[in-house]
């Protein structure tokens, strides 16, 4: 059984433990998130099916409360500074370059391999290092789109070696 099937089975168990009652939807989502850190699309669809309500309703409840995350965050969180100094020193092309490299579309922030989450941050206070970027809070100075991608590629390689 693959991971996503195992997860859905566990999700089903959690829903069953609440007697498939609609009023327990928030508690159900809390329990699922406690185990899986976020609520996947399949999870929300399973909840809708088991509770006999619309997927739109489940999604509506999930997006109302701040504690629910609908997106898994990556292992590495990359923040590109978008403060004034970094902006004029062309931080946007770095962000765009990384987005393209990570193949992020629309509002997607996390790469498909769950390794990277790309965000922007308003002024890291490292203006003299502009344009700056952080990877898991470690500051990297004077970035270019190429050097930023190189950093990420490096991490990917290391991860691949570790997993091999």
């Amino acid at each position: 059984m693959d991971a996503s099937n195992a997860m859905l089975q566990r999700v089903e168990e959690i829903i069953d433990s609440y007697g498939c009652k609609r009023e327990n939807i928030i508690a159900i989502m809390q329990d699922i998130q406690a185990e899986y850190k976020y609520l996947s699309r399949e999870t929300l669809e399973k909840i809708a099916e088991k509770l006999g309500i619309g997927v739109a309703k489940v999604y509506s409840v999930a997006t109302f409360y701040e504690n629910f995350s609908l997106e898994a965050k990556g292992k590495y969180i990359v923040k590109v500074c978008n403060g004034t100094a970094c902006h004029v020193r062309k931080s946007q092309p770095i962000y765009d370059g990384l987005r393209e490299y990570l193949q992020l579309e629309g509002k997607q922030k996390t790469s498909a391999d769950q390794l990277f989450t790309l965000e922007t941050v308003a002024c890291l206070g490292a203006c003299s290092l502009a344009p700056a970027m952080t990877i898991n809070d470690e500051v990297h100075a004077k970035m270019t789109p190429e050097s930023a991608i190189a950093l990420l590629e490096d991490i990917r390689r290391k991860e691949a070696v570790q997993n091999a």
Binding site: Q30, Y65, E66
Partner: peptide, 16 residues
């Protein structure tokens, strides 16, 4: 033995 029954539930908020 009073005939009075009461059941208690806890709901956790979810950030609102």
């Amino acid at each position: 033995g009073s005939g009075f029954s009461f059941h208690m539930h806890i709901n956790r908020g979810a950030g609102a």
